[in-house]
Design a protein around this nucleic acid. Structure first.
Length: 570
RNA sequence: CAGGGUGUGGCGAAGCUUGGUAUCGCGCACGGUUCGGGACCGUGAGACCAUGGGUUCGAAUCCCAUCACUCUGACCA
């Protein structure tokens, strides 16, 4: 591409409406532009990167033996009702009606449609296994889009679906996709970890996330410095490793605690620490109240709670529900005398003589013990914390932030049963097909790469995904000889399949350099002062200084760098 | 959903408290001087001040409503 006659622009100033490094640099470089909250235009440069990422995924999928298809985004709502996920997705699904009033949705993910597609081709065990994938636009009405391309409402996702006759087959299919994703990460040059995660609205047997490490990430990752523990915060275990408190039982006592309702306020009142309390949180689990008990310095892990109940939605109860269930204002809930289900964290069962709310305004109970109230279920209910030890080996745990770029699932038979996807085995018995599903966010990957690879001047694209591999920058556009030589190199590189950009604009050198740095082209060939001696400058975007080389050696040098690079990517 | 902020030429902002018909920087056009890390001087074009209503002789400015964008929290008792 020649810049002088193309849709190319950069923005010098910061973008007000972009809250992340990647969103800012991608907008300033003219890759993307926000059109509405969480919905982006992809401009020429941005589309080139997006296509490069998609082609890497496509290549890895094809190598893994998957076949590409394209499913509709516009889907009858009843499809998701059949699997039970219409309710699961709730308001995060975009929905609309056709002219006859028939409800449709815009697909947020496609397990159902692929199960339907599978059913059309699967009759016998001889039809299995196989694997389908697509690169397609998904729609999710996120409550709060943010961080540029990282959390959006319309995005291109790669999703793949495997079909097997049994769990052993699924293991093989899963491994292939897992390996394909590992290869993709390598080719994207992402610094990442793989963590076990919650299966969430997908359901199924196993979920792993490929998390690109970045402070901008919205996910918290828990790893251990002495074993290979690697898990998402929301599923990190807090096993029953607590020591019993053996102090003598004291008699329960009701104490007036006016104007004190937070743990800190009440602790100050009693002259005690938060660890001497049992916190009672009223949750709304699919609309029904549930009390959760954790030690005063702990937090409830809502994912664990949701999993235990198999619920779609878990949130803290509103004030009205708290008052109805505890007969007191918010701030005085306690387990004694509650008539709703009571869940307790393991740790609570090892405590003695603790303080709880009295279910009465401005009152707390002290010296409460397990005999004083009913617990319906004891479980691992809390969020892991800094001071906790590794649940596997007891080592020191480390918290990091990550961007979830890919997520393979072992689904099992959940969707097969819901969507009537069965096959006949060798004994002519009807069995559900065993499915896996695999997703990788294309735009999110693009943003994650920028989050990891940038400097003060702009983006540092890896060669594999860079919109152009080489930028040719002639500094004197009036010098005919120089322009001829630059054009010749430009033509030769492009003719041999090396995507090359030429900055033939009549701009000052500084402008051209700044722009090329901002958009992050990996290699730059500058035709400048030394051209009269037959020399050009060659510079890698990641290097501070340029080197002077013979003009007629530039092409070979670029070829060598690229062939070395791609050899290492294999 | 709850609470806060913002909306002014293409972009970024000032003006609003204390009403009097819009200012600055970037960008753009033209002329000139420049020309190796976002040049300088001069001239110029470009705005129904988010939308709708109200108060007023007069509204970007005050009042009401709506919409959009954005931040914080996703209510930790």
């Amino acid at each position: 591409m020649k810049l002088s006659n193309s849709y190319f622009f950069t923005i010098r100033e910061n973008i007000k409406d972009e809250d992340s490094v990647s969103g800012n640099l991608l907008t300033r470089g003219g890759f993307v532009r926000k059109n509405s909250a969480g919905v982006y235009m992809f401009l020429p440069l941005g589309l080139k990167v997006l296509n490069n990422i998609q082609n890497i995924v496509r290549d890895e999928m094809n190598k893994a033996g998957a076949q590409e298809v394209l499913m509709p985004a516009l889907i009858p709502e009843e499809t998701y009702v059949a699997s039970g996920r219409r309710a699961g997705f709730g308001s995060s699904m975009f929905s609309l009606k056709d002219r006859n009033g028939k409800p449709f949705v815009l697909g947020p993910t496609h397990e159902e449609l692929f199960a339907i597609a599978g059913a059309q081709g699967i009759h016998s065990y001889k039809d299995l296994p196989f694997n389908l994938y697509q690169l397609q636009t998904k729609f999710r009405d996120e409550p709060r889009p943010r961080f540029g391309l990282l959390r959006v409402r319309e995005f291109i996702m790669h999703d793949a679906y495997s079909f097997d006759k049994d769990l052993e087959g699924l293991d093989v299919s899963y491994k292939k996709m897992y390996d394909a994703y590992v290869n993709c990460m390598k080719r994207f040059e992402l610094d990442y970890v793989i963590v076990t995660a919650d299966t969430g609205v997908m359901g199924g047997l196993l979920s792993q996330e490929f998390q690109a490490l970045s402070e901008t990430g919205e996910d918290t990752i828990v790893t251990c410095d002495s074993c290979d523990l690697s898990t998402n915060l929301e599923v990190a275990e807090c096993p029953d490793h607590y020591e019993d408190d053996l102090s003598e039982y004291l008699p329960m006592e009701k104490v007036a605690t006016p104007n004190a309702k937070t743990i800190e306020e009440v602790a100050a009142f009693f002259g005690k620490k938060p660890t001497d309390f049992v916190k009672t949180l009223i949750y709304k689990v699919d609309g029904k109240p549930v009390a959760c008990l954790v030690r005063g310095n702990r937090d409830v892990n809502e994912t664990k709670l949701r999993k235990y109940f198999g619920a779609n939605e878990v949130e803290l109860a509103d004030a009205a529900m708290v008052e109805e269930t505890t007969h007191a204002r918010v701030g005085f809930a306690g387990p004694v005398g509650l008539s709703i289900p009571v869940m307790a964290d393991y740790e609570v069962t090892h405590m003695r003589n603790f303080i709880v709310g009295a279910n009465e305004n401005d009152m707390h109970l002290k010296n409460v013990n397990l005999k004083d109230f009913r617990i319906d279920h004891v479980m691992d209910l809390r969020l892991i914390q800094d001071e906790d030890r590794c649940p596997v080996c007891g080592g020191k745990i480390v918290f990091r932030k990550g961007i979830e770029v890919a997520n393979p699932f072992k689904l099992g038979d959940k969707y097969s049963k819901a969507m009537n996807l069965y096959y006949s085995d060798a004994n002519n018995e009807k069995k559900p097909v065993i499915m896996g599903s695999y997703g990788l966010g294309i735009g999110r990957t693009m943003a994650a790469i920028v989050e990891q690879k940038h400097d003060d001047w702009g983006i540092l694209w890896p060669i594999s995904v860079a919109p152009y591999k080489v930028a040719i920058v002639p500094l004197d556009t009036k010098n005919e000889e120089m322009m001829n030589a630059a054009n010749e190199l430009y033509d030769r590189l492009n003719a041999s399949g090396i995507d090359t950009l030429m900055d033939d604009r009549d701009e000052r050198p500084g402008v051209k350099f700044k722009d090329m740095d901002l958009i992050g082209i990996p290699m730059r060939v500058t035709f400048g002062k030394a051209f009269k001696d037959g020399k050009v400058e060659f510079k890698l975007r990641t290097d501070a200084k340029a080197e002077l080389i013979d003009a007629n050696e530039a092409e070979e040098k670029i070829r060598n760098i690229l062939s070395d690079y791609f050899a290492k990517q294999r």
